[in-house]
Structure formats: C-alpha cells, structure tokens
Design a protein around this nucleic acid. Structure first.
Lengths: 94, 94
DNA sequence: ATAGTATGGTTTACGTTATAAACCAAATTA
DNA sequence: TAATTTGGTTTATAACGTAAACCATACTAT
C-alpha cells in the first residue's frame, strides 16, 4: 500500500485543495466560510500548502481592505490527483 | 463539508480497516506485513479501533505461538462506508 | 475627535496524535 | 544454555492540528 501524501491527508488542507481544484481562485474569507474553520487554523494550513508549492496566496487590496487570494498550482493539482489515486486503493474504489 | 471521522482518517488505521473490509479475518502478522508498519504502531492502532468497536482482536494460540486475529464489526463496516461517502465529496468523486 | 467594534488576518501556546524505540515473555535454534 | 526469533506491548518523543491571543487597519457611533 502506497503512502498517503501527509500534506494532503489532513482534513482542512484537503478541503482547501478540493475547493481550489474546482474554482479559478478563492479568497481567505471564502475558504474560511466554506470550510467552517477558524482563521488561525486556516492561515497555518494555507502557509503549509504555499510552502509546499501546492497553492499560491497573493495578498492584495480591494479598496482599502486586505484580501488574500489563493490559487492551486500545477504541482498542487498533480499532487491532489495522485493522492486521489492512492486513496482509491484504500477505499476499495474502482 | 462534513467532518472526516478522525478515527478513520489516519493512514494506518484506514489501511487496517480497508484490509478487514475485504477479508473475513486477518492476524497481526499479516496486517503488519501488508501495511508495512512497525509492530508497535500497529498494536496501538489496533487498540484504538478495538476500543471504538470498529474491529475485534482475539488473542489465541496456534500450536504454542500466540496469534491475534482481527475482524471488522458491523459498526466498523458502517463507519468505513460512511467515511468513504464523506471523503468522496472532498475528492470530487461521483 | 475618540472610543468601541468589525474585518482580515498572523503568531503562539497547547493538547493530541502518530510513530518508533525500548522492552517483555515465550519459543526456537545453535 | 546462550543467543536469536517471534509476537507482540509499553513508553517516550516529535510532529501536528487547533484555538486562543494577538495585531493592524477600517468603520461606526457618541
């Protein structure tokens, strides 16, 4: 049985990646609402995904308010797809 | 997004459950080989699954050697299937 | 003006968890 | 009978997830 990428095998990080797989971009506030996570937890996990090169997080402004926009990278997309394939074995799917 | 049962969202415990979903029974040595885990780690995780009521672990003898035989319970089977359904959302499957 | 509150986060401290190392008893082999 | 193997359990540690505390700026009410 292959290893499950530990960076992705975490509920909140997986949720973030899952969302980013389906949208072009998502900001911090949206991710926080969708995942029902605390800001602190989300911040930490976004950092980890960013450091790994799985997502990008651009900090900008909309009017005078800060806004952090996240996007999945090609590397992140590949890692996610790979993770899904491995997980299918564990779940006895297809 | 629903919660991922934390008891199942662990590589080794998930591997054990996955195996036990497909066989009537499996002993400690077999699980250790299949999962490529250390005995200590496996022992701990089997305990947790047993305490949760997801598997049973019968300690017996074969000749003079001890042998721990594991089986999944109905509760464990249900929890696994439930976990798979929740996870499918995260993985964007079906 | 300024005190209070909301927004959009980051940093830090803590408890939990996974994991390996150390250990143990019994059986087998040299 | 000494050493090794087998089949595990217990314990110590490091990593991890999480929430609480915090910070800066913006907005609102007085």
């Amino acid at each position: 049985m292959k290893e499950l990428n530990p960076l992705l095998h975490s509920q909140l990080r997986l949720a973030v990646m899952s969302i980013l797989m389906n949208v072009e971009e998502a900001d911090f506030v949206y991710l926080k609402e969708k995942t029902e996570s605390t800001a602190g937890n989300l911040s930490v996990q976004i950092d980890k995904l960013t450091t790994a090169g799985y997502i990008t997080a651009e900090k900008g402004f909309v009017g005078k308010k800060t806004r952090t926009v996240c996007r999945i990278t090609e590397q992140g997309r590949a890692a996610f797809e790979q993770y899904v394939e491995v997980l299918k074995d564990y779940l006895n799917l297809q």
